[in-house]
Design a protein around this nucleic acid. Sequence first.
DNA 1: CATGAATGAGAGTTCATTCAT
DNA 2: TATGAATGAACTCTCATTCAT
Lengths: 234, 234, 234, 234
Amino acid sequence: MAGQPDALAHLAAFADRRRDPDAKKQAVLQTAVQIFIEKGYWQTSLDDVAKKLKITKPALYYYFRNKEEIYLECYRRGIALTQHSLDKIRSHQGSGLEKVAGFIQTYTVIVARDFGRFLVRQDDRELSPKAQAEVRAEKRKIDHCLRSFIEQGIADGSVRPCNVRLVSFSLAGAVHSLATWFEPGGALTAEEVAAEFAQTLTQGLANRRSAKLRIPDFEPIQIPAKLSHGEMRS
Amino acid sequence: MAGQPDALAHLAAFADRRRDPDAKKQAVLQTAVQIFIEKGYWQTSLDDVAKKLKITKPALYYYFRNKEEIYLECYRRGIALTQHSLDKIRSHQGSGLEKVAGFIQTYTVIVARDFGRFLVRQDDRELSPKAQAEVRAEKRKIDHCLRSFIEQGIADGSVRPCNVRLVSFSLAGAVHSLATWFEPGGALTAEEVAAEFAQTLTQGLANRRSAKLRIPDFEPIQIPAKLSHGEMRS
Amino acid sequence: MAGQPDALAHLAAFADRRRDPDAKKQAVLQTAVQIFIEKGYWQTSLDDVAKKLKITKPALYYYFRNKEEIYLECYRRGIALTQHSLDKIRSHQGSGLEKVAGFIQTYTVIVARDFGRFLVRQDDRELSPKAQAEVRAEKRKIDHCLRSFIEQGIADGSVRPCNVRLVSFSLAGAVHSLATWFEPGGALTAEEVAAEFAQTLTQGLANRRSAKLRIPDFEPIQIPAKLSHGEMRS
Amino acid sequence: MAGQPDALAHLAAFADRRRDPDAKKQAVLQTAVQIFIEKGYWQTSLDDVAKKLKITKPALYYYFRNKEEIYLECYRRGIALTQHSLDKIRSHQGSGLEKVAGFIQTYTVIVARDFGRFLVRQDDRELSPKAQAEVRAEKRKIDHCLRSFIEQGIADGSVRPCNVRLVSFSLAGAVHSLATWFEPGGALTAEEVAAEFAQTLTQGLANRRSAKLRIPDFEPIQIPAKLSHGEMRS
DNA sequence: CATGAATGAGAGTTCATTCAT
DNA sequence: TATGAATGAACTCTCATTCAT
């Protein structure tokens, strides 16, 4: 339901002087990521971000060391969101195939939303080597997670034997392509697309004997309020 | 075999004053696209390109009107390459599934190479509206082509009934993700990866009865020497 | 007396960080117009202007959108100056001939000074079409004003019947030529030249019976401190 | 009648390889001066000139050392044209007032044409000091010539006593203003305007007793075919 | 004679970033 | 805390000018 957090709500964060600084950081990120998605990171100037927030450019420097840190923080939020969801699926009791389906569904929803979209569209080449290393490690974790689901599926017979690495890659790639394509506010909601994706992509994966797949309902993801520098869920 | 054209060969194009100007244009594009891939378009300055070619920056303006035209021309080359290959597959006699497999294989090889990679990684949002329109029309053609293969497959029974739009999207997405991931000079050649991709991705698509798929051998793509303004194969 | 505002006074405007921004805008214009007059607009680089103000080039962009806006603003100032003076003469009670004389005198002084000089020497072809339209409309107003004075003079018998359009044109042309010729700091002050111009040019215009013309004393023009975008006296 | 030399005629000069080089120089100047007038010297690139002549940029360097020399040569042509006409008037037998009228008429026609217009509109500040000196000396001669006519008029009683310097300046200024204003191909021909100017401007100058002025008919000026480097009529 | 190709110098402009307040 | 002002570094692009052919 909640879906995209309201941009206006974020502007409000800057309305009062005294106010939760974390909320303001949030607001900056939320605004930034939307412009990044709309125009691309390099074509977005800090002035663009500041103007939309109705603050001044130097004010941004109070919350972030520089432009790259905003970029990185958006990236981190995207990753954290994903990790969050994966935790739920990991702990779910069910067949490997179910978990794979859950992964696809959850991940799709994330990728259709702001931070996930940014995560997937914006290349991590553009980060500094240090930041890149950090981010890639996290991305790899996500990939490994999906692979483990597939492997579990092969082990428990719900998934047809296959080249795990390649399949994992293909599934993720299919979902990623959504980031370019999906337009929020279009005919289908993110959840609807996600459900269809989960169905379709797992079809080819399922072992013949398996009946129609029941995808467990992983509730929608909440954006964690805080995520201070350096710290990151793993 | 040939694979990536040798960068040094292109440097040579500028060795003599008087020489095939098309070769020089080629050389600029080839060099530019490599740097674009390496560092991203926005982080690449024309000085970077010029320096690598051992010419001066304004010399580039002798061959291209501006930076965006270089960008666009790289894009066009990527698209033309793809269209080229699709033509071969379209005219191939075989089941829909075979064509899909052919598409995946061919497209994968292209996406693992310079211009294809650029095409897939660089967002077309960044082009001017006019250029964007041109490019998107071509991209849509490619997508439609893949869909028609799938539909043919469903019609001839080689492909399991499915949501064509979604499947087409997923297949393309899977291949695209390769652009980020594939490192030329790595353990696997582009062709090897392509073959594996074609096998794996079509597995889930094939109708049960179908025996192991025989993927026809579509010979490697040649980069067409010239590709003058405006002209483009469709 | 005051006459040309002191360039050094303007440099002072940038001495302090925090200071009347309008004063700084003023200072930029004053400095720019002087260099424009000295070397011509096209041979003047923004670096020239900045250097003379002892600031850096991009600082100029804090006050003006681009070079043309500086140009245009100088133009506007020249026009506003003229309009200002004309208002006084329009409201003056006296014969048409007296008003013509007043026009010549006042206009001459303006044309001998910075902004007026710039206005007259620099071609408005060089402005963007939009700016050109704006500026030409104002110029036409000035021309019409002079014509109305002449017509009044003919009506009240102080001016000999003549081709109004041509005479108006010639008078203005005569004054304009001063912009090229007059060197501030030369033997004659602008006011002296102006008085002589007013006498000489009206001599041929006066009806025979009229005794020696008494030119009313229109006090020297003050440069209005502010002249914000878009606003302009008419 | 002849009026503006035909631009197409000049293009023809470059049609054949072997051909009068002076004719080609002519053609360059004629074309250049037209573009200069249309867009201004600084906004005109040598490419513009070359393109209009359907030759290449470096070819211009065969005929002229650099851009400034083209500029200067246009200037020289304008001056030579004027000098040419003045010679005729100087040798004319008649009152001073008649000569003044003749000056105005002749000069007006010149100023309404290409080279004269350029001469008057384009500032000589833009020339190198050396060229400036040359040109200004010539301009001064023209001014002196007009003054001598006025003085002769005062001496022979045809002109009312006046401040010669100022009147001479005003007359010239009035004519100059035409350069900005006159549009060839408009309602009035240059000759018509010239006649009217001569009438109007001398009216105020004439002594009362003088009857309607008869302006002698100085035939239209021919553009001298050749005018090689450095040489100039005085 | 003329051209295609290339260059060097410089222009205007943008923008992340930093002070001083 | 937040801002107005300013900067430095970079970038794209233009253009007069010059070779080599």
